[in-house]
Computed example of a mutant assay.
Amino acid sequence: MTRKPSTDLIILGKKVALGETKTINFSFAKLYTSTKVEIPVIISRSEKPGPTVLLTAGIHGDEINGVEVVRQVIAKKINRPTRGTIICIPILNIFGFLNAERTFPDGRDLNRVFPGTKTGSLASRVAYHFTKEILPLADYCLDFHTGGAQRFNAAQIRVAPDNPKLLKLAEIFNAPFTVLSSNLSKSYRFTCAKMDIPSLLFEGGKSLDSNKHIVKHGVDGVVRILAHLTMLNPLITPTEITQKTVIIEKSRWIRAQRSGLLHVKIACNKYVEKDEFLATITDPYGEMRFIVKAPNSGYIINVNHTPIIHQGDAIFHISTTDNTDSEDEEN
């Protein structure tokens, strides 16, 4: 679908003509030192009209893998379309990125304040201006995240259930897993859904960590989506698909039954059988050793890498066939 005119694109008050590549700074706030904070927006347009694809990362400032995915898309000139427009924003939460923190300086999570308000908190104002000035230009959105804190996510696409169009796009992206997950109120993809803009949320790896395998899954997925939209430079070849994405319809969190030191014994992405040995929890004094077993057969799509845990902490995310404890801890 292409809803935008094929002539000059007006973004953040600047004009970008067909065939032009331009970097425009999204700037409306300052640090308390009066230093301007600018968010670079890289726009690349083909001479031929077509759809507009928006790539975003760094909604959480400590999620490096997503930033690297979008950086590689730009560096490898994957963002130079044969038709249409590609808009790249490698770091949307520049405030959090400067401090290596998930949230804004006001402590708010940008992915919980969309579509934002003009006179609200700093995070809410960023969400508002982004939603008003950039998001309406997009025909498709790809948003890149990692697991929160030390929770390592298998590379996965998250889409709302009962949406065949999004599921088809997720299958084209072909991350190792596609997780059916309801949109959270005030999240970026919730706002995309309300604006009828198809969006895919990519999750992979953990915060403050760069993982080349996770990044490759993200970049390969972008290439496949652009090829599907006939926007990909013919000199770039999509990676051959050797295994189709695994659809995860239901899942549950395995929580720690003891507090102590966590010793993980299995890898993320692995398919485990019921009662398979997953980890041990020990105390520092050599007196307690608790074995964590799989409550059901399924894929492990998240592993907690925190070495010290408390009782009740989420330590594994596993696919299942029932609705038991299927709470969402989405980014």
Rank of each mutant, 00 (worst) to 15 (best):
E68W: 02
Q72I: 07
L92C: 04
I91G: 00
D139G: 12
H129I: 13
S34C: 12
V69Y: 02
H60Q: 04
D109K: 07
T131M: 08
H60P: 08
A138H: 08
V37E: 12
E47L: 15
K36N: 14
R45A: 02
V41Y: 00
R112Q: 15
I74D: 00
P136H: 04
A75H: 14
N79F: 01
L54W: 04
V73L: 00
S121E: 03
V37N: 09
L54V: 03
R102P: 03
C88H: 00
T131N: 11
L110C: 01
G58E: 02
I59K: 07
K77H: 15
S44T: 04
I59P: 01
H129G: 07
A123C: 10
G58L: 02
L137W: 03
G116N: 11
R83F: 07
I74R: 00
K77E: 15
R83D: 11
N79V: 01
E47D: 14
G58A: 03
R83C: 09
A100K: 14
G50E: 01
T85Q: 06
I89V: 13
V126S: 05
A57E: 04
I74G: 00
V70A: 03
T56I: 13
I39F: 05
T82W: 03
L137R: 01
T33A: 11
G58T: 03
T85G: 08
R80N: 08
S44C: 01
L55N: 02
I42Q: 03
I59D: 08
I91R: 02
L55G: 05
G50M: 02
F130R: 05
S124E: 09
V37S: 12
G96D: 07
F95H: 11
R71W: 11
H60R: 05
R102H: 07
T85A: 08
G107F: 13
N111Q: 01
P49C: 07
E101T: 15
F95G: 07
I94H: 10
